[in-house]
Design a protein around this nucleic acid. Sequence first.
DNA 1: ACATTCAATCAAAATCTTTCATATTACTTC
DNA 2: GAAGTAATATGAAAGATTTTGATTGAATGT
Lengths: 262, 262
Amino acid sequence: MLTEERRQKVLEIIKEKGFVSLGELSLHLSCSESTLRRDLEYWDQLGHIKRTHGGAMFTGEQLVMPAFEERVTEALEEKRLIARAALDLISDGSVILLDGGTTTFELARLLTGRSLQVVTNSLPIANGLSSRREIDLILLGGYIYPKTGVALGPLTIAQLERIHVRQAFIGVSGITPKGLFNSNLLLVETERAMMRSADEVIVLADHGKLDRTALAHLCPLGDISTLIVDPQLSPEQEAWLAKAGVRLIKTPPLQGQEGGAA
Amino acid sequence: MLTEERRQKVLEIIKEKGFVSLGELSLHLSCSESTLRRDLEYWDQLGHIKRTHGGAMFTGEQLVMPAFEERVTEALEEKRLIARAALDLISDGSVILLDGGTTTFELARLLTGRSLQVVTNSLPIANGLSSRREIDLILLGGYIYPKTGVALGPLTIAQLERIHVRQAFIGVSGITPKGLFNSNLLLVETERAMMRSADEVIVLADHGKLDRTALAHLCPLGDISTLIVDPQLSPEQEAWLAKAGVRLIKTPPLQGQEGGAA
DNA sequence: ACATTCAATCAAAATCTTTCATATTACTTC
DNA sequence: GAAGTAATATGAAAGATTTTGATTGAATGT
């Protein structure tokens, strides 16, 4: 097999799977791991993939999985449905803000083709949207938190003070009757600034986030306009959300659920 | 068989299969490998195929990669040498600013392993550096110019006013005795702000940029501290650069790259 | 602390480029 | 139309490059 041909196959596999390990690659292609490493290096240089310890992930041409956390695949279908529900709230030509996070990332993927102004502090989202001509992208700068690739801190907050958006879509780690939580103190500072900049605050969360807390308290429940969640939440949870005056949007139940078709 | 006829067959086979090796080609056509190589060379020149080690691949109708990645390979070796020369100017632990552009991108690539604070308005650079733990990354936000993925405009400028860096590395489209040029008006505004934020302004350019102008005038020559360029510039060019008081750093010539010559 | 995984290096194999002599084609001239 | 000449195409060989798989010590993640 020709060098180029093999490289194409390598890229194809990575593109298909999102992430591969070296061992997995060498199952498909008969050549040494050294060679595969070199191929990964090659595509990495061209920016189509990103090498990681143990393998590589696709980052090229399209909206891609965030290069950051592996939680992405967790509850993926639910996140997609939540993102789709969020999409329905967005009208053409408006200005929205997208927080970092896996669910907002899913939402970003769905925005293609819509004429919008999108503000975000998330590197993966900016990445995916940057080549879309139909979308005006405004990136929030600041200190980049390496773990998730979002901009945080005083610079980000200062920039938010000069920006006003119709809707802000926020992801959180936990929701309890006490309010919303996220895992990082700087992050919640930044998210508070986002909320101040928005007419409407829409929180995206799967039911797993309910009744869970995290390190940093973001705000009381009353500060948000809308919560979009999948329908698998308990009646009690629904009750205290209603009591706090949160507008609750439940996604339709999973249709093709069951059995992760291999 | 006529030459033309054989060449057509060669192209046809490549188009059909996508990839072919030389051996495979010579099964279908009875002539020497030398001749087939010349045929591949012929079609390669016309852009219908791309020669590779061991054979060739069809490219006639394939889509081309976006502008950014394409330009990367142009004068790549020179850019790398320029980037390497720039690297020598950076001391560990310092704060640098990287403009967008292909040469600064090469520089960013070389930064891995150095403990630095890096400020950039370039999405591709931020991408590459975001997971490096040894590097503190500060991203400049703003309107993202889709063509090159850099942040521009008033938001970016406002953010730069709150930042101070030791060295700013800037890429330009043209350099003449009249000064520096770039292709985008918003971009030069932003770059001026970068220059204001830096103690030292270092411009990276290959010799092809000399004596070329572009749409937007950035600044007179006197405003920059240092120009790093490959050594293929004319004596006149060197003269007017010296006259303007620009510190000129020439990279070593391409061929004579010392180092690990075995 | 451990087991992986990585980057760097090396030698062998494959392939490439260059060069040259020969064969073929095209063109000129008579 | 035939012979001679220039231009191009071909095949083969030598030396330079590239690719590859294996091996090493270093770096990384649990």
